[in-house]
């Protein structure tokens, strides 16, 4: 019942609260911060149009979310379970100031990059081989289908035994997780190359190597890129699990470490960082996708 009441109250308080959160040092002067928004809203023309855009609506949603979080934190009253967004912001700033945040984020993204590169080097050539040769596919596909249902997470205990706690385990788990979407999408991409393109090239006397390089690779690349983004999404979820259980560093390790120390604001801070880094990586991959395969506009993840 109380939840309903707070829910209704949120929109009015939302904007001013969020203005305070953006700048924790000035949380008291939330009113002046909100004030400049008023004149812009009354001005006609371009500025007004900006205010009614999706960006403004997004900011409003975040403001409402932060306000709800703030009220919920006040209602729970237990900073170890749910610290207020202000405390989390302060924790984030202190983590950023002493560089710890960037250290862990850098370690995790380096591992991510290494394992994605390894997975591409393993999966894409194999995918081309299996996609081009039906015989190879018939023999190798059963192995893939046997291993694929075993999630990367389930390899963690065995991986811990083989590699021990350290850098290799998260990379191994991520390579395993990233391998299958890359392989399957490469096979599908190679198989679904438009037969007309291949025939047209053949009619014009194109050789095998040129066919591969100029026809099959460009035609299959968009699907491979979709596989790459799926691989990234899987790997990003897996690295947190792998680091949390079997690594002495990285973002996944950090959240659990501070949980054990009951420094909850830092736990939430690192969770925010996980979200931001994941989001930025996805943005980068989208840009890469557009840059590498500009002819594949409109192909999206299912």
């Amino acid at each position: 019942m109380t939840m309903n009441v707070t829910n209704h109250r949120v929109p009015e308080q939302g904007v001013s609260r969020a203005a305070g959160v953006d700048d924790p040092a000035s949380s008291q002067r939330s009113e002046p911060d909100a004030a400049p928004a008023l004149p812009t809203a009354t001005k006609p023309g371009a500025i007004r149009r900006i205010v009614s855009t999706r960006a403004f609506i997004a900011v409003r949603s975040f403001a409402a979310f932060l306000a709800l979080w703030y009220l919920l934190a006040a209602w729970v009253g237990n900073p170890i379970q749910l610290p207020s967004p202000l405390r989390v912001a302060a924790a984030l700033i202190s983590l950023g100031a002493d560089g710890e945040l960037f250290d862990h984020a850098l370690i995790s993204t380096t591992r991510l990059a290494i394992s994605l590169v390894v997975a591409v080097l393993l999966a894409v050539p194999l995918g081309f081989f299996m996609g081009l040769s039906p015989k190879a596919n018939a023999y190798l596909d059963p192995v893939v289908e046997l291993l694929r249902p075993i999630s990367g997470i389930a390899w963690i205990p065995l991986g811990l035994f083989i590699f021990g706690v350290g850098d290799v385990l998260p990379v191994f788990i991520m390579v395993y997780v990233a391998f299958f979407p890359l392989l399957l999408n490469t096979i599908a991409g190679v198989r679904h190359v438009d037969g007309k393109l291949v025939n047209a090239a053949r009619t014009m006397g194109v050789g095998r190597r040129a066919m591969l390089r100029h026809v099959i690779v460009p035609a299959a690349l968009p699907t491979v890129m979709v596989g790459f983004r799926l691989a990234f999404a899987g790997a990003w979820a897996a690295i947190i699990a792998a680091e949390l259980i079997g690594s002495p560093s990285g973002l996944g390790f950090a959240i659990e470490w501070y949980r054990q120390l009951l420094m909850t604001p830092k736990v939430y801070g690192f969770i925010v960082v996980i979200g931001i880094v994941g989001y930025l990586c996805d943005l980068a991959l989208r840009a890469l996708q557009r840059w590498l395969t500009p002819w594949a506009e409109g192909m999206e993840l299912a």
Partner: peptide, 12 residues
């Protein structure tokens, strides 16, 4: 929230 891996929720 989507890029926040499920396991990141575990400590919380």
């Amino acid at each position: 929230f989507r890029p926040i891996a499920p396991m990141a929720i575990l400590p919380v």
